[in-house]
Design a protein around this nucleic acid. Structure first.
Lengths: 301, 301
DNA sequence: CACGTAGTATGCGTAAACGTCATGGACTTC
DNA sequence: GAAGTCCATGACGTTTACGCATACTACGTG
């Protein structure tokens, strides 16, 4: 039994598992059952003659051999896709970039960068998708996206400990902002003091983040009152506009506040810096990816 | 049904068919039946959505789409092999060249070049195999060998009409020679006149070549008397040594004549030039291949 | 002109591969 | 300790893929 005996299905399943982080997620994404995924992984591990995934309680992690296989599987599958396109008579997929982005980047940064890129390089096609930081990091490693826009908060930990190390570029570093309804007392000036945030009602994100709760201003010395939780930015901002509460927003959303919402700064507390990071696998970028990276850099300013 | 739905088996079978030129040959080489090969090809053609092989009376020929698929299949399969090696902890197969050679190159040219390469570049590993011109040309196109040493006779036709065009380099051009037993009257001098070849007995190659019969001096104005036919050079030369007849040899065999055999020139007739050609696919060579090519060039002189 | 030869295609039967269902085991969280 | 979230595995049905035998086609030969 040799690694050459793997099946293409196994390679695809493996890539999906690497990207999703759990068998179950990969299975639903592929339209399989978890059982089928488990068997396919067992088969590819048998073929590789080594354990490729470390089973942990919250899913799986790539072993060293797993990283090798992932890198190669991505190449094989890409080559196959390239063949498909070539057979269909389509142009070689050189002018396409795949970008992953964190949710707050979708309202302003992403559309502006795409528009600017279309002006300067109309031939380049951008395919993008939203995702959380871990899922985008996995997508980078699985070769499913070429670039990833990530948000990062202090203490700015490395994104993962895998190899090869991702190449990171901080596009901008700005303070966290606050979204308030225009009629609200706090909306009078351009900024408020952190002390004024006591006793406010908050609109938080859905998952209680490990340490800090997304949406609520960090470091408050009280137990915040959470009136609503929502994942979607449009929903959150319109809840703010309706006076349902306040929420924190990335500075990059400043240009996209709907009527009835003001985005203001907060002073007086410790600085709440947030970085927007452009991440990619080491190695040379395609021309299209380099152009998109440029467009993102200039747009961010 | 998309080309991404092919199976790896189908890709391998396809490459083998491209290399062998017939389903039947590919089947025996793979340990399959012809029936299985036929089905696999049908399946890959269904996946590709196009006919990949032109069925002809003597086997098959690649269509344009077939060439596309072959090129890509070779890459996919190579990538898979590379993965296998990487998993096994072996060094990336960068220091290996695969060389194909025509039978007369095996006695002198090949061993000398390998020895010289081992002196100058001991790290390079050469894998080689014998083959006929058409089979080596197909092997080049299938990506199974990196370089091919071919013999060519006037009118020096192109090796095939496929695309991309192979890159050819004439290493040397010398006259066809004659192998005679040392005791033979013709062995007295360094050369004989073509007129003296009348009435000789000959040791020919096995397959009656299309126009000229290998082993018999070309252009004789008589029906040659063929005493023996043999494929193997060692056998042929020892038959000559035993006085069983004469045979033509490539000049490159001159250094390998066993005791009892002399290799001499023939004058008086039209020059019977033979070229030794180094062929490869267009594109950049690996370092190892370039070194082997150098070794072959210097050895040939 | 019948026949042998060298090639590919295809109907049929069997054996292996694969995916689902259902269940079990390990571990964490409430 | 009950429930939830993972992955693993035995049992089962369906599909796939192979080999065998047999067409079918085109060409060369006597």
């Amino acid at each position: 039994m040799d690694f050459s005996d793997v099946s293409l299905v196994a390679l695809r399943v493996f890539r999906e598992v690497a990207e999703r982080g759990t068998f179950t997620a990969a299975a639903t994404s592929l339209g399989y059952t978890q059982s089928a995924v488990s068997r396919q992984i067992a088969s590819i591990e048998r073929a590789a003659g080594a354990s490729l995934l470390e089973r942990r309680r919250d899913g799986v992690r790539l072993t060293t051999a797993g990283q090798v296989v992932l890198r190669n599987a991505a190449r094989v599958l890409d080559q196959l896709d390239a063949t498909t396109r070539e057979l269909a008579g389509l142009p070689a997929e050189g002018g396409t970039v795949r970008l992953g982005w964190f949710p707050s980047a979708g309202a302003v940064l992403l559309p502006r960068a795409i528009a600017s890129l279309r002006r300067s390089q109309p031939a380049i096609r951008v395919i993008s998708r939203e995702g959380s930081t871990p899922s985008l990091v996995r997508a980078l490693r699985a070769g499913t996206v070429d670039l990833a826009l990530l948000a990062s908060a202090p203490p700015f930990r490395p994104l993962d400990a895998e190899s090869p190390t991702l190449e990171l570029e901080t596009l901008i570093e700005r303070s966290l902002m606050l979204a308030v309804p225009t009629g609200h007392p706090l909306a009078a000036g351009d900024s408020v003091d952190v002390a004024e945030l006591r006793g406010q009602r908050w609109i938080a994100g859905p998952a209680a983040g490990e340490d800090t709760l997304m949406g609520v201003w960090p470091g408050l010395d009280e137990r915040p009152e959470i009136a609503h939780t929502a994942r979607d930015w449009l929903a959150k901002l319109h809840l703010v506009a309706a006076g349902a509460g306040l929420t924190t927003v990335s500075a990059s959303l400043a240009g996209a506040a709907p009527p009835g919402v003001r985005i203001i700064a907060v002073h007086g507390g410790p600085q709440e810096l947030r970085r927007i990071i452009l991440a990619r696998l080491p190695g040379r970028l395609t021309d299209a990816a380099a152009h998109l990276a440029d467009a993102l850099r200039t747009t961010v300013r």
